[in-house]
Design a protein around this nucleic acid. Structure first.
Lengths: 125, 125
DNA sequence: GCATCGAACGTTATATCATTACACTCATTT
DNA sequence: AAATGAGTGTAATGATATAACGTTCGATGC
């Protein structure tokens, strides 16, 4: 299942994954959600909140759990993961001043990846 | 509808809203989604991606559209909005270096608000 | 005036995402 | 062996969101 996700390069919904792994014996959504939950716990999978979908962790669980961001291309669906240590720290500090204790941050960027920006301008010209 | 959202102080799902405004003649989800879409366009409502829910804009559309973040209390559900101009700019710059053109950013923090942290430590002591 | 058009709206149905409930298996403990 | 409890599989359902389609109504051109 993790292999499927990693191969996809984009985010897959639980039902996308279900379709992909039916051959391997998983038959119901709840089984996929349980597996995803476990993988997320191990830091091998991230959930993309704005897509209600999942990606394989690009960084092989290098303990960055709470400071990861995603750039999501609206055109091709590609999701790239990057670390945002300093940004996450700044946000925590900022909200801490009003007494809020941050446990988890979600940072997601929507836009166009390099490849799609290139194609877009060609088409427009 | 906006009044309902503003009064709530927390995020409401489209169906929460639907229940609240049935008296005012809205009868189906799609009507609520259409209204929300319009309000979002006007900058009066924000969507909280990690909750699949909506909040009234706390800043009266002061043109901060693309640089707003939310601190969401896991205990009481309170959502507070704050501006993250510099953070959003930094993220845009950062991804721009790899050719990604950011159109929209989502920043959401989960944790405990001041009030709930206080209560929590009392209970724990 | 009135035919035409298109945007907005209402209704119904359906698609999509996620969880609950419960029975069964099987390893562990006693 | 009986009791316990974690994990698993299945079915059903709940929660979120959109599609499809007909109607209304104001704007436009004749």
């Amino acid at each position: 299942m993790l292999a499927r996700l990693a191969k996809a390069g984009r985010a897959l919904t639980a039902y996308d994954i279900l379709d992909a792994v039916r051959a391997q014996g998983l038959r119901a959504p709840v089984q996929v959600y349980r597996a995803l939950e476990k993988l997320r716990g191990e830091g091998l999978v991230h959930r993309i909140e704005s897509l209600n979908a999942f990606v394989a962790c690009a960084h092989f669980r290098r303990r960055h759990e709470d400071s990861v961001a995603f750039a999501i291309c609206e055109t091709c669906g590609t999701v790239s993961e990057f670390a945002v240590l300093a940004t996450a720290r700044a946000l925590r500090t900022r909200t801490r001043r009003s007494g809020f204790v941050t446990e988890r941050t979600t940072v997601e960027l929507r836009g166009r990846c390099a490849a799609c920006v290139g194609k877009g301008s060609e088409a427009g010209a």
